[in-house]
Computed example of a mutant assay.
Amino acid sequence: MRQIVLDTETTGLDWRTGDRIVEIGCVEMIDRRQTGRTFHVYLNPERDVGDSERIHGLSDEFLAGKPLYTSVASEFEIFVADAELIIHNASFDVGFLNMEQERLGRPRIAELCPAVVDTVKLAKEMFPGKKASLDALCERYAISNAHRVLHGALLDAQLLAEVYLAMTRGQESLMDVFEQPLELGGAHSGPRSDRKPLRVLHASEAELAAHEAVLDQMAGKGPCLWRPPVSQG
């Protein structure tokens, strides 16, 4: 299974009011393992970054010489195509990416990728009432983010990849089970000779007596599901 962990940095919070993307960072995972392949680009947003510079540290002067989105769109599409996207607060990033794609008459994210996993939604389902920010999740899973002084698309995507793997750790062992080859014998094959017989342990008299004592206590407080009611008459 191919997954892309994705993050963007922008000039503001709303693409509807003219805000644009200034950075895209992507990390590739295959079968829940990072491959080392990344997609990372800074973009000239064709407008001032304004107050957003204090968030990502990218100045107008720095971005002035960077490529326009139109020059990286094809490469971006190739990198993410047919992969499941993993994004923190997905509606934000997908909204900006769809805007940039539509400006050029190119396909929307839903046409490029089969599914999008929102790790904010996932975190809120797993930990109701708890903070779901990337920093909070890094702290929860003991993932070092000491080097995250400012927001950065590639850095945040790398951190999110580790967070996502920690949040969904049980899926890893499940995948391992599915990946094990089945050992099927022939139509007339007998039992495997290397399989050891199961050892059956029976409760001792003392253990049975202790069990009955617990049931007596439960029955004294009301109907006990583990002991049938005494018939009347």
Rank of each mutant, 00 (worst) to 15 (best):
G18P: 11
P228F: 10
R54Q: 14
R47E: 06
K130F: 05
V22E: 01
V72Q: 01
P67G: 02
D82K: 11
R54S: 15
R140T: 04
H40A: 12
M175G: 07
A219S: 15
E84S: 06
S133I: 09
F79I: 08
T17Y: 10
R140F: 02
L13R: 09
N145T: 11
A73V: 11
D31P: 04
L159N: 02
S52W: 07
G105S: 14
A206S: 12
G50L: 14
L201Q: 14
I109T: 06
D19I: 05
F178K: 08
I86R: 00
L43K: 03
D48H: 14
G50S: 09
T38N: 13
E172C: 08
T168C: 10
C26D: 05
E111N: 12
D14R: 08
E61L: 13
G233N: 10
R140W: 06
S91E: 11
I24G: 03
A64M: 14
D93K: 05
G233K: 11
Q180L: 15
Q101R: 06
G186F: 06
D93N: 11
A142F: 07
C138F: 04
L215A: 05
R195Q: 09
L68F: 10
E75G: 05
G185I: 03
K130H: 13
C138D: 02
T38H: 12
P191H: 07
G222S: 05
N89C: 08
G57D: 11
Q171S: 10
D48Q: 12
E125Y: 11
L112I: 08
L58D: 07
R106V: 07
D93G: 05
H88V: 02
L43M: 06
E77C: 12
R33Q: 12
